[in-house]
């Protein structure tokens, strides 16, 4: 990564942090409803992988902790925030919510709320890309707990069997909802679990964005070169509960303190200050600008946007006026 890229990466990760913290506030203010799963602590995962990939070209699919992945693909943060507010200007026109952020134009194929659900969808996108002869790849971001679903095993088998261009990124934050990995999972090191399917894998520190980037580069190159699927495990930690309804009482304070010292943003910030790339004041200015952008552009847009109209409640259930529903050759029908 070049110094200029590192500075941009720091800014983008700080933006991700502030965006999610502002979501938290909006949720407390009851501007955002439903379930809200936030990303603080895990920023280097999406950031590092997408730095190595081609955002907007490669196809991304993920679970419900999806705001930042969408933004990394190129989704407008204003549309993401408006979606959380349930507004018509939201990325899914207010029909999806926090767990279902889509931006198909930028190849963000959605956040899905059934744990493990995106595995086969990602492999299917890869199958389609392979059939079309595309040089894009499919990237599936999911948490460690998804690997205990049947879809994990079914998909790993098919992805390798058919040599599909799909990168599985396991963001291992050590908890499946509120249950620690060693209480739910027989083999704790997730990258080992795909060896039974013959899929190459690596495990790296998910808090250091440069390490994530370097590992993701190898992974992305492997998949893009036609060598089939790859599994990348990133060791990370979420600084908040699983969702907003989570009291987070199940985690030891020592553990939380240990991981807070490995904050991906602080790690990179301090490294850049030490290298002379930025000063602490630069960082503070950056932060002020981001907070201003979030408040005066993003939140303002979401607040000012219109609600969906109830007369359009039933829109988007099925295709409108599909010609094969009542084809001309029909006969003898009512």
């Amino acid at each position: 990564m070049k110094p200029a890229d590192k500075k941009r990466v720091l800014r983008e990760m700080l933006f991700a942090r502030r965006f999610e913290e502002r979501c938290y506030e909006a949720y407390v203010e009851r501007k955002i409803g439903g379930f809200l799963h936030l990303y603080p602590g895990q920023e280097a995962c999406a950031q590092g992988v997408m730095e190595a990939a081609r955002p907007g070209h490669d196809y991304v699919i993920t679970g419900y902790r999806d705001h930042i992945h969408a933004i990394k693909c190129g989704a407008d943060p204003k549309a993401v925030m408006a979606e959380l507010y349930g507004k018509e200007t939201g990325s899914s026109k207010g029909r999806g919510g926090s767990m279902h952020i889509f931006d198909v134009e930028h190849h963000m194929m959605g956040g899905y709320a059934l744990v493990g659900g995106p595995f086969p969808l990602a492999a299917g996108i890869a199958k389609g890309l392979k059939m079309k002869g595309s040089d894009a790849i499919s990237i599936c971001f999911l948490g460690d707990a998804a690997n205990n679903q049947g879809t994990f095993h079914e998909t790993m088998n098919m992805a390798k069997l058919w040599n599909l261009p799909v990168l599985f990124v396991c963001e291992n934050n050590l908890y499946g909802i509120g249950t620690r990995i060693d209480r739910s999972t027989a083999v704790i090191e997730q990258y080992k679990r795909v060896s039974g399917y013959g899929i190459p894998a690596a495990q790296v520190d998910g808090q250091d964005v440069e390490i994530v980037y370097d590992a993701a580069k190898i992974a992305v190159d492997h998949v893009r070169s036609g060598k089939g699927p790859y599994f990348l495990e990133l060791m990370t930690y979420r600084y908040r509960g699983h969702s907003m309804s989570d009291s987070n009482a199940y985690r030891a304070k020592d553990e939380e303190r240990m991981w807070s010292k490995r904050d991906p943003i602080i790690l990179l910030r301090d490294r850049l200050i030490k290298a002379g790339t930025i000063t602490l004041d630069d960082y503070k200015t950056m932060d002020t600008e981001i907070l201003d952008q979030i408040e005066n552009q993003i939140i303002k847009f979401a607040e000012d946007s219109p609600e969906p109209v109830v007369t359009e409640l039933e829109k988007y259930v099925l295709a409108e006026n599909d010609p094969y529903v009542h084809p001309h050759s029909s006969r003898g029908t009512h």
Partner: peptide, 17 residues
């Protein structure tokens, strides 16, 4: 792997298959 291959087909359909 019914859930797996059905999901794989659905995913492929997202991009025009």
């Amino acid at each position: 792997s019914e859930n797996g291959f059905t999901g794989l087909g659905i995913g492929a359909s997202f991009i025009g298959i």
